[in-house]
Design a protein around this nucleic acid. Structure first.
Length: 453
DNA sequence: CCCCCCCC
């Protein structure tokens, strides 16, 4: 099987334009890292000469590639991330390790190279090995339907939904994440927003609850004023706050560890690292990274769309400052294009390090940022993402701005869950204590379930 | 809602 391709030992960190033909010689069960919630899965790949390399998949990629990298099958692999093994593990795992990600191009080759494996290993029945030992690894589909809840919703509905999911919640990092077999994730913080991602299946009671109250929820959402420079279908229903106290000073979130998840910031963005990649190739259907060439039609491994098109998507790593401090933050897609005053195709074709002539590298005036803090698994500090940017001139003199939807709802919503005593919008003092207790007991319940897992 | 990284 050798011929026109490189061999494993031809590929070092920094090697460009390589393709290696490999057999998946071993495939281990996915595992969760000891000291972080990171999931990883190791594979051993073997070339025609019997040389091997350890390849690793992380997180969601484990399920994404489970049908792409089958034990005993042959593949052409290019553009894996090639790294030197951490010194203390070189003896055990080899000098070089590959990381397989969405960036990696994997092409199945219909060849039977099991003889290579057999000549190297003593086992022959590898086809019969259970390939995916852990069926709870993750969910495979991430079409996103996003529902943001606030204030008393978090105490009531969020808890309620979590109790009524078919599948047990798991705690990942600082987020409560709930998965169901057909794809649901919920993340929440006690004092902030609450999401439902994905297509999901809920028990009957909750279906009837959402049905009964759908009009109220729709009203709440449509009453929300919105206007952004960087429209996002996901966040199009969010208000820019009117009250200064609803904006966050950057100094208060520098080195942020946990707490609140979303912030409004009045600040200015600027690019501090000029030499960065301002785009990535993406699937036009799901925005996930693609290993294909621009314009190519391909089956997307992430969203399973059979005729996905590879298109560039803007990305920028920037610094966000206000009078009190600065944070580093990433913007992707619309907010990145808006800030740079460019578009993904131009960014892709740009070969030289950009200058202020080719794109906007810093803002002259302050603008309003909606920022998400993400708890990182690898580091104690949060990282920040710009979800959208609003130019203040857009909201000047707008009477509707910041209109709080909760003020327009008079009728309290009854929950089906009998133990939840608080009404949806009743959030004043005498209930505050009991509400806090409920949140805590819910947290304990969740933790208990995790331990049972 | 998406990039990067990630683990033995």
């Amino acid at each position: 099987m050798g011929d026109k391709f490189q061999l494993i030992h031809d590929v070092s960190p920094g090697t460009a334009g390589w393709t290696v033909k490999v057999v998946v010689a071993e495939k281990f069960s996915p595992r969760v890292a000891q000291r972080s919630p990171t999931k990883y899965q190791n594979l051993i790949l073997m070339d025609s000469e019997g040389s091997t390399v350890q390849a690793t998949l992380y997180g969601q990629n484990i399920t994404t590639f489970q049908d792409e990298l089958i034990l005993g099958k042959t593949y052409l692999i290019s553009n894996a991330l090639v790294k030197e093994t951490n010194a203390e593990y070189k003896a055990k795992y080899g000098e070089i390790q590959w990381t397989i990600s969405g960036r990696t191009r994997i092409r199945r080759v219909e060849e039977n190279n099991s003889n290579i494996l057999i000549s190297t290993y003593s086992f022959t029945d590898f086809e019969d090995l259970p390939m995916y030992m852990d069926s709870n690894v993750d969910i495979s589909k991430f079409d996103t339907v996003l529902l943001t809840m606030w204030e008393a919703f978090v105490d009531n509905e969020c808890k309620y939904i979590c109790q009524n999911l078919k599948k047990k919640p798991v705690l990942i990092g600082k987020h409560l994440k709930v998965t169901s077999f057909n794809g649901l994730s919920i993340s929440t913080k006690a004092d902030s927003s609450f999401f439902i991602d994905g297509e999901f299946e809920l028990v009957e009671e909750f279906k009837s609850w959402t049905h009964t109250n759908s009009e109220i929820i729709d009203n709440m959402i449509s009453e929300k004023h919105y206007l952004t420079s960087t429209p996002s279908k996901l966040f199009s229903k969010l208000s820019v706050p009117t009250d200064e106290k609803d904006f966050t000073e950057i100094k208060s979130i520098q080195g942020l560890k946990t707490v609140k998840q979303f912030f409004w910031i009045k600040g200015r963005a600027s690019v501090k690292v000029l030499n960065q990649t301002y785009w990535y190739m993406s699937c036009n259907n799901c925005n996930k990274i693609s290993s294909e060439n621009y314009g190519d039609i391909y089956p997307c491994v992430f969203c399973k769309c059979t005729d996905a098109k590879a298109i560039p998507r803007a990305k920028v790593y920037m610094q966000l400052t206000d009078p009190t401090g600065y944070i580093n933050a990433t913007a992707i897609g619309n907010p990145a294009e808006y800030f740079l005053q460019s578009n993904a195709e131009i960014l892709m074709n740009q070969t030289l390090i950009p200058t202020a002539a080719s794109m906007r590298l810093s803002m002259d005036e302050y603008e309003i940022f909606y920022v998400k803090a993400i708890t990182q698994e690898s580091s104690p500090d949060c990282k920040f993402e710009i979800l959208f940017i609003v130019n203040p001139s857009q909201i000047a003199g707008d009477k509707n701005k910041g209109k709080a939807p909760v003020e327009h709802i008079d009728e309290p919503i009854k929950l089906l869950e009998p133990t939840t005593k608080r009404s949806l919008f009743h959030s004043d003092t005498d209930d505050a204590q009991s509400s806090k207790k409920n949140v805590i007991s819910q947290e304990l319940r969740v933790r208990k379930k995790i331990n049972e897992f």
